[in-house]
């Protein structure tokens, strides 16, 4: 066990990730050949999800109508309840089969990228919006918001310049965690929309029981997760400089005062 383990570990450090049992191709070639398409999908979906979450929360906070606010506040739980594959299949049925505005297979057109991105973003935006809404409400309960109001700052100025920055901490934590959801979701989305990418590689690796390839994919996923969470940890001090000065053990304290 030790010899195999050490061989594999040494291989990893020299950039040798092993060879796929099914194709004989090196795991690195197999993964890097298709990773670009998945990273593009996941990246675009992530940015869209952040935009959806911020605009939902912004609209819900800034609107003066209680009815609109109540409706908007209930949108994130609805998004969280929608499975990605269902939304993808429904959109595919409507757009390509009934209305014929989109190709069933990815053809490089704008819609064939935008629809999968939107499906993935909807699912990912839900926890983001829920957490952001909670922490925005918390920030609005604090006295400095009253001071800003008393000084005559406009509602949107208070929201974008002051409340959003103070509420961003918990949302940032969730962003790190949603990366897992993002990659699990892109496997499903890619399968539904017949896109090539990591999704199809994961699917074939698991169904053909190609162990070295699965090992490589696990390593890749773990690395992405770790890198993103590292980035999140490094962003905390930028949002709230108190983290660096107040915690000796490196654990960020709760942002809520």
């Amino acid at each position: 066990m030790l010899t195999q383990y050490l061989n594999q570990l040494v291989g990893l450090f020299s950039g040798d990730f092993g060879y796929s049992l099914a194709s004989g191709q090196s795991v690195w070639d197999r993964i890097s050949g298709v990773a670009g398409s998945t990273v593009a999908l996941a990246g675009a979906a992530f940015i869209t999800a952040v935009l959806i979450a911020v605009s939902l929360v912004g609209a819900a906070t800034l609107t003066r109508s209680t009815v609109i606010r109540r409706v908007l506040v209930n949108v994130p739980p609805l998004f969280a309840a929608i499975p990605a594959f269902w939304l993808g299949l429904v959109l595919l049925d409507l757009l390509s089969i009934r209305w014929g505005v989109m190709s069933l297979f990815p053809d490089g057109s704008f819609l064939s990228l935008a629809v999968p991105v939107l499906v993935l973003a909807t699912v990912v935006s839900a926890p983001l919006a829920q957490v952001l809404l909670k922490s925005i409400n918390h920030v609005y309960d604090q006295p400095f918001i009253d001071v800003l109001r008393a000084k005559g700052a406009s509602r949107s100025w208070i929201f974008f310049r002051h409340a959003l920055k103070n509420a961003a901490g918990p949302a940032l934590t969730i962003m790190g965690i949603t990366v897992g959801t993002l990659f699990a979701g892109s496997v499903i989305t890619e399968t539904v929309f017949a896109r090539s990418g990591l999704g199809s590689v994961v699917l074939t690796a698991v169904t053909t029981q190609d162990v070295p390839l699965v090992q490589g994919l696990v390593l890749l996923t773990a690395s992405i997760f770790v890198v993103v969470n590292l980035a999140v940890d490094l962003l905390y001090p930028l949002l709230d400089p108190r983290i660096l000065t107040s915690s000796r053990d490196g654990a960020p304290r709760a942002l809520a005062a």
């Binding site: 195999q4 997760f225 590292l230 490196g250």
Partner: peptide
């Protein structure tokens, strides 16, 4: 700042190593 950075990077590498070892086992 440097200490915080090194601590985080060390933790990150540890997680990747543990994940790979778990899969191997």
């Amino acid at each position: 700042m440097i200490r915080y950075l090194l601590q985080r990077i060390g933790q990150a590498l540890l997680v990747v190593w543990l994940a790979y070892t778990a899969v191997f086992l």
